[in-house]
Each structure stands twice: as structure tokens, then as C-alpha cells.
């Protein structure tokens, strides 16, 4: 039996009819055409489908849709504001921290989850937080540098806002 549920996706209330038991990833992609979270491993091992649930990074392929009800779902599509890239997105471009880009949205969302909890992560904390994300093209060192740059950028923004 289909269920009618309400979800909060990128700050917007969305009503949707779904088959119970579906993973969050399927609903994001098939019902909302939000395909930034990728189909890749299906078992929460590679991180390519990472989104935030109440600011916590989760693997959307392994989260049942009902676990997302009543929580704020944030996807890569909701990250830039009025065409202005988020500092993480800009840092990934600045460091060319990608090749094919298939892992990139998941990398950025995992990194965002880290920076929301830890504004000044040490390098080993970045590695620990990102260990669940695979990049088969091998851009890991660049991704680490991009996250460090974005962390610095976000701290400056925050201080600016504080002093303003």
C-alpha cells in the first residue's frame, strides 16, 4: 500500500506518495528528481549518496524513508544560495578536487556534516570523517585540501557575521 507522507527537503515542505520500505535515495531521485545523490554501492559503503538529516551525514541508499519524516533533509542541490556557491563547492573547484565527479556531491555533503560539527578539524579528523567516502579517481589529497580551505573560509564568514 502506498503511503502519503510529508518531507522537508532543502527547506521546502514536500508531499509525496511512496511505497513503504523504500530508501530515502529512491524517493529523492525518483519523486523529486534530485539526482545529485548518486546510485553507487547500495550498502552504505561508498558515500556517493550522502545527504544530511538534521545536519548529520547519512547514506541515503541505506536509510528507510520513514526515518526521514520530521527531519530536515539537505541535498547537494540545496547548498548554493542564489547562484552563490557554498565555500565547500568553491573549494572543490579551486583545488580541482575531482575528476569524473561522480563521488563529488557525496564528498561535499560528508564534508559539510563534518564542518557543521567541527569548525576547525585537524587533518586526521578530516580523514576519519571522510573515510566512508570512496573516490575511485584518487583525488583524496585534493579533497582534504579543499575541506581545509572551506573550513577556513567558513570561520572567516562566521567571524564577519559576528562582528557585523
Amino acid at each position: 500500500m502506498a503511503d502519503h507522507i510529508q518531507l522537508t527537503v532543502n527547506g521546502m515542505q514536500r508531499d509525496v506518495t511512496i511505497e513503504p520500505g523504500q530508501p530515502l535515495l529512491t524517493v529523492l531521485r525518483d519523486s523529486f528528481a534530485l539526482t545529485g545523490a548518486k546510485i553507487a554501492c547500495g550498502e552504505g559503503q561508498c558515500g556517493a549518496c550522502t545527504v544530511l538529516l538534521d545536519a548529520q551525514p547519512v547514506r541515503a541508499c541505506s536509510i528507510p524513508i520513514h526515518a526521514a519524516i520530521g527531519k530536515a533533509i539537505q541535498t547537494i542541490e540545496g547548498l548554493d544560495e542564489a547562484g552563490q556557491l557554498h565555500p565547500l563547492q568553491q573549494a572543490f573547484l579551486d583545488h580541482a578536487a575531482l575528476q569524473c565527479g561522480y563521488c563529488t556531491p557525496g564528498m561535499i555533503m560528508s564534508a559539510l556534516g563534518l564542518l557543521l560539527q567541527n569548525a576547525r578539524p585537524a587533518r586526521d579528523e578530516i580523514i576519519a570523517a571522510m573515510q566512508g567516502n570512496i573516490c575511485r579517481c584518487g583525488t583524496y589529497p585534493r579533497i582534504i585540501r579543499a575541506i581545509e580551505q572551506a573550513a577556513g573560509e567558513l570561520r572567516v564568514q562566521k567571524e564577519g557575521a559576528h562582528h557585523a
Binding site: 531521485r29 534530485l34 539526482t35 545529485g36 546510485i39 548554493d80 556557491l85 565527479g101
Partner: peptide
């Protein structure tokens, strides 16, 4: 020279459609 990656912005914003993303 090393110009910015063409279409890099579509990648970091999740807008690039790979084959599994096509409808």
C-alpha cells in the same frame, strides 16, 4: 595552462546528469 575544469560547476552543484540520472 590549467584553466578551470569545463562544467565543473555542474558537478559540485549536483546538476550534472550521468546516465543513471537520466529520465
Amino acid at each position: 595552462t590549467s584553466p578551470p575544469k569545463v562544467a565543473g560547476r555542474a558537478i559540485v552543484t549536483g546538476q550534472r546528469r550521468y546516465t543513471p540520472d537520466l529520465i
